[in-house]
Amino acid sequence: MESVKLFGTWFSPYSRRVEMALKLKGVEYEYIEEDLKNKSPDLLKYNPVHKKVPLLIHNGKPISESLLILEYIDETWPGPAILPSDPYERSMARFWAKFLDEKCPPAMTRACMRTGEEQEKAYEEAIEVLTFLENELIGKKFFGGDTIGLVDITANLIAHWHRFFEEFSEIMQPPLITKEKFPNICEWVNDYTNCSFVQENLPEKDKLAQLYKARIQAAKAATQ
């Protein structure tokens, strides 16, 4: 019998993207919630290098790092494709997924949390990053075209998580993502978050809002 386990945390966009991919493929799996302040022996055993989530265990074999897990899921199980079949399109999907992971979280977080000149610079960097994504969506419903793919799943941080970070930062004005500045991204957010398998794997809004509010307040207190 096939065994699929996913170690994750409820609030992590990286864990949730793996769950979305598994749900998209119709894969049955056991979810194991991790306490990152008190990591389980199994997590440390199966991911000794990074010691973090998400971690997928398939028939006793561990796969770590969310983007690698997404590709593994796509290659292992039948169902809707996560990556395009065309070699060039696959390479472009990998490019934009890596771009999202490397550029978006740092720039958008700094824009929310920094102050003064440092915040202004971070805000400009975040706008530049989002402009690239806005242009990539021209003429498309999803980054993958007419269907959700690797880049869409990778971009879930923008679709759901960022709104709470931005709301409670109380620093950044004006907001980063608006219909006036980024109409394509806003339309994509609406289409993406209204997909049933995506909705099933988004954290509860109130619970996530409370977590972000507490984290941002703690971060501010530490700098005072």
Rank of each mutant, 00 (worst) to 15 (best):
A107E: 13
A21F: 02
A97C: 08
K45A: 11
Q199L: 05
S3R: 15
L83S: 12
E30R: 12
E180A: 00
S85I: 11
T154S: 00
I158Y: 05
G139M: 02
C104K: 14
E19F: 06
E28N: 14
S64Y: 11
E19N: 08
A122Y: 11
G8R: 10
E136Q: 07
E125Y: 03
E124A: 12
V198G: 05
A93I: 10
Q199N: 06
K205D: 06
W96G: 02
K179H: 12
F164H: 15
S15L: 08
Q119G: 13
K23V: 07
P203R: 04
E200P: 06
A209S: 06
P48I: 10
A126T: 12
A97H: 13
G60Y: 14
Q224P: 01
I177G: 00
E34N: 09
M113I: 14
V198R: 01
E102G: 13
A209K: 05
E134I: 05
I148Q: 05
L55C: 10
F99I: 02
A111N: 14
D191Q: 08
S64C: 15
E118G: 15
N184Q: 04
K121H: 10
L24D: 08
R16P: 04
T154F: 06
S3H: 15
W96K: 03
L55M: 15
K45E: 13
I216Q: 00
E71M: 07
I158C: 02
S64N: 14
I32V: 11
L150S: 12
P105Y: 13
G149H: 07
V27M: 03
Y212H: 08
G144T: 08
N190T: 14
T9Y: 09
V27D: 07
M113P: 08
E204L: 00
I177T: 09
Y29R: 06
N135F: 02
N184L: 04
E124Y: 11
K213F: 00
G26D: 09
W77E: 10
W161R: 10
K39G: 00
S15M: 01
E71I: 06
L208T: 11
L55V: 13
S169E: 01
